[in-house]
Nucleic acid binder design. Sequence first.
DNA 1: ACCGGCGGGACCACCCGTTCTT
DNA 2: AAGAACGGGTGGTCCCGCCGGT
Lengths: 207, 207, 207, 207
Amino acid sequence: VRSVSSKTKKRSRKTQAQRSQAMRRRLLDAAVKVLRRRGYAGFRVAEVEAAAGVSRGAQTHHFPTRDELVIQTLGHLFRNTQARALKRAALIGKGDDVVQALLRDSEEFFLGQNFPVAFDLVTLGGKRSRISERVKQIARSTRVPVERAWIEAAIRSGVPPAEAEDLVWMTINVVRGLAVRKLWQNDRRRFARLLEKWHRMARGGAQ
Amino acid sequence: VRSVSSKTKKRSRKTQAQRSQAMRRRLLDAAVKVLRRRGYAGFRVAEVEAAAGVSRGAQTHHFPTRDELVIQTLGHLFRNTQARALKRAALIGKGDDVVQALLRDSEEFFLGQNFPVAFDLVTLGGKRSRISERVKQIARSTRVPVERAWIEAAIRSGVPPAEAEDLVWMTINVVRGLAVRKLWQNDRRRFARLLEKWHRMARGGAQ
Amino acid sequence: VRSVSSKTKKRSRKTQAQRSQAMRRRLLDAAVKVLRRRGYAGFRVAEVEAAAGVSRGAQTHHFPTRDELVIQTLGHLFRNTQARALKRAALIGKGDDVVQALLRDSEEFFLGQNFPVAFDLVTLGGKRSRISERVKQIARSTRVPVERAWIEAAIRSGVPPAEAEDLVWMTINVVRGLAVRKLWQNDRRRFARLLEKWHRMARGGAQ
Amino acid sequence: VRSVSSKTKKRSRKTQAQRSQAMRRRLLDAAVKVLRRRGYAGFRVAEVEAAAGVSRGAQTHHFPTRDELVIQTLGHLFRNTQARALKRAALIGKGDDVVQALLRDSEEFFLGQNFPVAFDLVTLGGKRSRISERVKQIARSTRVPVERAWIEAAIRSGVPPAEAEDLVWMTINVVRGLAVRKLWQNDRRRFARLLEKWHRMARGGAQ
DNA sequence: ACCGGCGGGACCACCCGTTCTT
DNA sequence: AAGAACGGGTGGTCCCGCCGGT
């Protein structure tokens, strides 16, 4: 991509660190795909390797165990989501329809492809408690800041500070509930109607 | 299902059937425990056998495959839940606080021990599509009647028929949303506050 | 082996316990072969299975882990050796040449095929400490009775009790030393000469 | 061994060679530790690297394969032992107690830390025949000169030449036998008594 | 000389379903 | 119906060696 002055080392455009980084990324992206397709129960490292076009050795080098790979994958996923959410919340200013914006953001997260993955992992319990704990911690550390950002956004938009927190919680919660329902019955029109209804109630209540 | 022709063997056969029934029940109860502890991914038939105090052969006899056991277990769980819910909905009469009653019923289901199990199973995808389909079907066939019953209860209690469906959906949905949040952060006081808030909003909207 | 009166069950000559026993024996015998050929470091359960003509499942059923198989194999080996040794010691009576008899018995054990196996296992240390401990314990519990039996035999044969213990120890020890030398240099004539020399010295000392 | 032609590069080359030498030494010493702790079966090149504080690449550079490292380690060990033994044998003069001196030397070797390592390696058989052969050869080429040196020392001390060889062999053999017994039962007092007994017998027989 | 990413063979344990026996 | 032996696929991890970089 960037020009190299020396002829002799033409091929070595990438340092080891860069190659390493690229490989990690390929593996994580492939792992996301597999988690979406199979869930944690059906997650096979071999499938990730095949999807990433990477050898067994390379995989274990970067992620020594299956669970480590899963956890890092979740972190990868949540970091991206978080970044988008924070950006959106930051755009909210005085007079903006924060409920509307928050609904859109939540829909993308909860009704998108990532949430089932997160959900699946969070429900792991018992013997798998080690992974379970780390998953919960990742969820906390990425979602709490998002909620905080939206609460501040709500206040900026004009919602009374005393009500902002509940408003944000409830709005997120409504979408979260639909995400679960979607798992066994995906009725988009009804979902849209319900969200619209909440939108009206929330604006009514906040005004 | 099969006809009983001989009277003479009635007694002994009945004993057999009872024993069989008892064994099935022990296995299903044990399977519930294991599903709670380990989730589907960590579900091992051997652990069920140990928990039930039953031999390998007995388990295989009653539930030929692992997935069959899981599905029957889920059915077992949902049937119980459904029965309780229908009973409660039937108690609602004119003037009763249907939102309150529905919230209580939903809390028991969604915030109780059974929901994570159901949730875990519903998220199975891909390769496991066979079981996944049956799980969804069980969810549909047990939850839809419950919703219908509550809608009717709402109408009986005095909610305008045009609003009853949305009211029930939204009320259930709010609790469902909290059930997910609970997976990684169980803040009971805040949950109670949110449910109370919804209670007030719903009654305000319905009045 | 035993006659079965019923015609219909002609084929079921063996009980489950007998079949189980036979299978264990086949596995142990095969494991002995593999341990001799490869040593502990090169011991592969798959090779044992192939040698025994047994499936992976059957193997794990009887010996859940590789190390368990190894340990049981050693026990198997030592039990046989011990039985033979005790029988021989019991034959010694007044006036018999106990040193000669003990030398023959020790030669069979230490210079035979079994000793290198035992030796290999006893040297395992460190991380493998669990197996190492059990191996040592097996060695102790089978060899100590053998030594005791020979000491008693020596006394019966006429060796002064005060000298019997040292005599037995030293005789066994001489053969044991040659067993080690044999590992890298097998000079039978010289070994025979040395043992003969010790025989003369011992009889001289004991007289 | 190799001639140094250029004077100009003497300094820098020496530095390189020294560093190389030091690294080899660190690796060999670490390998000794690991062999003692784990035996050949549990020997992992990664553990050697960790113990030596050396990178994967450096290890590979000096010892291209695992077995090469093991063999070099054994050579390292035996060379040291041999040097000490030859020095001790050389000190023996007319009238000295050669049995006593040989017992001391043998105790250090056979009852010390190095012998189990050697022993473990010598027992490797079958598939590992390549390494096994080299190990035996190392044992032969270091031990035979030691034995010869002691035989000569015995003759110098006054033992009749016809008896010297057997005396040395037997003395070494007695200690070697105890080395094996020590593997599963370390009874120092008894060992000392037995060695003392042999000392008296040998002097008696030699006089 | 030294470093570490990477390739990939090997091996064991897990786990379920089947097949006798009792 | 219940119990236990047996079959065998599968998958994660280990571990070594290679080789392109530094």
